[in-house]
Write a protein that binds this DNA or RNA. Structure first.
Lengths: 154, 154
DNA sequence: AGCAACTACTTGACATGTAAAACAACCGGA
DNA sequence: TCCGGTTGTTTTACATGTCAAGTAGTTGCT
């Protein structure tokens, strides 16, 4: 039941210099594949992967969030977020408002329309998650997550 | 020694609907972080992550490769590859030639200049791989790679 | 108060990824 | 051989991510 190994998959004559390199390449390729699937699901509602993430962050937050908060959570630079927010706002999925406390900040909040979009995506996204990671056994899944957490650790 | 968990890291009020979802998010975020580091290394030679990959594929191949072969191995659409190849060719790192056998194909080959660029990147890239994946134990690393291979399996 | 330094965006310019369409070249019959 | 259908690649158009600058609005120090 061994899946095609990366070495074979990319047909490299000189496969890998190290096991670490193999892990790096495998991680990047796997994420690449996964991203496409997520995009495919989001497309059904006419939004992109990152727009979806913005909406999900806003839904997850109890209160309206300043733009930079979203940027931090998405690990993306501010300009990109500004554009996502522009786009989502123009389509009525989120609402922006100045906050009296610090007028530099723009607080973003998901609208009922945005919530409905997310709700329609919940089921297919859950299905994707399960189809993707569901074949891993419980302890393999746990180990995988733990390893990923460790790798991101500074 | 537990790293910040994703749930905590992204400050979501409603963390995850499932363990599978946590794995999906962790994978995407980890790849995101890793990509930035790779880009940072490539930048020292003035090339991008994907241009680096094109060069590495061409170095790994014994013979010149048609453009579409590169696209397949990089899992990227043709137009993107055309541009990378244009860019690399204009800087003398690769060479393009028509092939008599099938005149639709354009064969790409790395030049000595391109090889030198790669050689200068080999050491820092190895270092990155090790810094990134090196803290995993041997068997944790093996399990990680195996899981990734499995996840990419159709 | 006054001003330098900093923060939160926003805008503009540019590289890259993708879908769609344009082309040239090849392939398999009729 | 001629023709419709594929294939390899490029062009075009567009969305997105990043960097560099620009603009408000704040803060801290004097």
């Amino acid at each position: 039941m061994t899946p095609r190994s990366i070495a074979e998959e990319i047909k490299q004559t000189r496969p890998f210099r190290s096991r670490s390199q193999e892990a790096v390449v495998a991680l990047l390729r796997t994420a690449n594949v996964l991203t496409r699937r997520v995009e495919a699901v989001c497309q059904s509602e006419g939004i992109t992967h990152q727009q979806y993430n913005v909406l999900r962050i806003l839904r997850g937050a109890k209160a309206p969030l300043p733009t930079m908060e979203i940027a931090e959570r998405l690990v993306e630079q501010a300009p990109g977020i500004t554009r996502h927010v522009n786009n989502l706002e123009s389509r009525g999925m989120i609402k922006r408002e100045q906050w009296a406390g610090d007028r530099r900040q723009v607080l973003c909040q998901i609208t009922p329309a945005g919530l409905r979009v997310l709700e329609r995506l919940d089921a297919p996204m859950d299905a994707l998650d399960d189809a993707f990671a569901g074949r891993l056994g419980d302890e393999q899944l746990a180990a995988f997550i733990e390893t990923l957490d460790l790798l991101r650790d500074p």
